[in-house]
Simulated scan of single mutants.
Amino acid sequence: MRNAIIILFCILCLTLGYGFYLRYFTQDTLTGDRFLGLTILAVAFILMPMFLYHRWKDRKVKDYMLDEDNIRRMRAFNDRKEPRKNSENQ
């Protein structure tokens, strides 16, 4: 999965560069705009979901949700920390 994401990212970077080349250096703005638009769509609807799935596939969503147990653990953690000394009040 990781290699597919890297290869797709490289291909999309090349097509983005080619779209800019067509648009600004060959005066073929219609084809350049098509390349740019299709590349942005591919990044948004293919590359980004693949990347997000790859990064989050083994994570537990419950660890990131704010429920009673997590609130209790945060309060216990904050109570264990020693209070900071404020130099302005002394």
Rank of each mutant, 00 (worst) to 15 (best):
A4N: 12
I5R: 08
I5Y: 01
I5W: 10
I6M: 15
I7D: 10
I7F: 12
C10E: 11
C10T: 13
I11M: 12
I11S: 12
I11V: 13
L12T: 06
C13Y: 13
L14W: 11
L14H: 05
L14T: 05
G17H: 06
G17R: 08
Y18Q: 08
Y18P: 00
Y18M: 10
G19R: 01
Y21G: 01
Y21I: 01
Y21C: 00
R23G: 08
Q27C: 09
D28R: 11
D28F: 02
T29A: 07
T31K: 15
T31R: 14
D33Y: 04
R34N: 10
R34A: 09
F35R: 09
L36F: 03
G37N: 14
G37S: 15
L38F: 06
L38P: 01
T39H: 01
T39C: 05
I40E: 14
I40A: 13
V43L: 06
V43C: 07
V43S: 01
F45H: 09
I46S: 05
I46V: 13
I46Q: 05
L47K: 04
L47P: 01
L47V: 03
M48V: 15
M48Y: 14
M48A: 15
P49H: 11
M50T: 03
M50Y: 06
M50S: 06
M50R: 03
F51C: 10
L52V: 13
Y53V: 14
H54F: 15
R55N: 12
R55G: 07
W56K: 15
K57D: 05
K57V: 02
D58M: 04
R59Y: 10
V61L: 11
K62W: 00
K62E: 09
D63C: 05
Y64G: 07
M65K: 03
L66Q: 07
L66R: 03
D67G: 02
I71Q: 02
R73N: 06
R73A: 11
M74V: 06
R75H: 04
A76C: 02
F77T: 02
K81C: 08
E82R: 03
P83I: 08
N86V: 07
E88C: 04
E88G: 02
N89D: 14
N89Y: 14
Q90F: 13
Q90L: 11
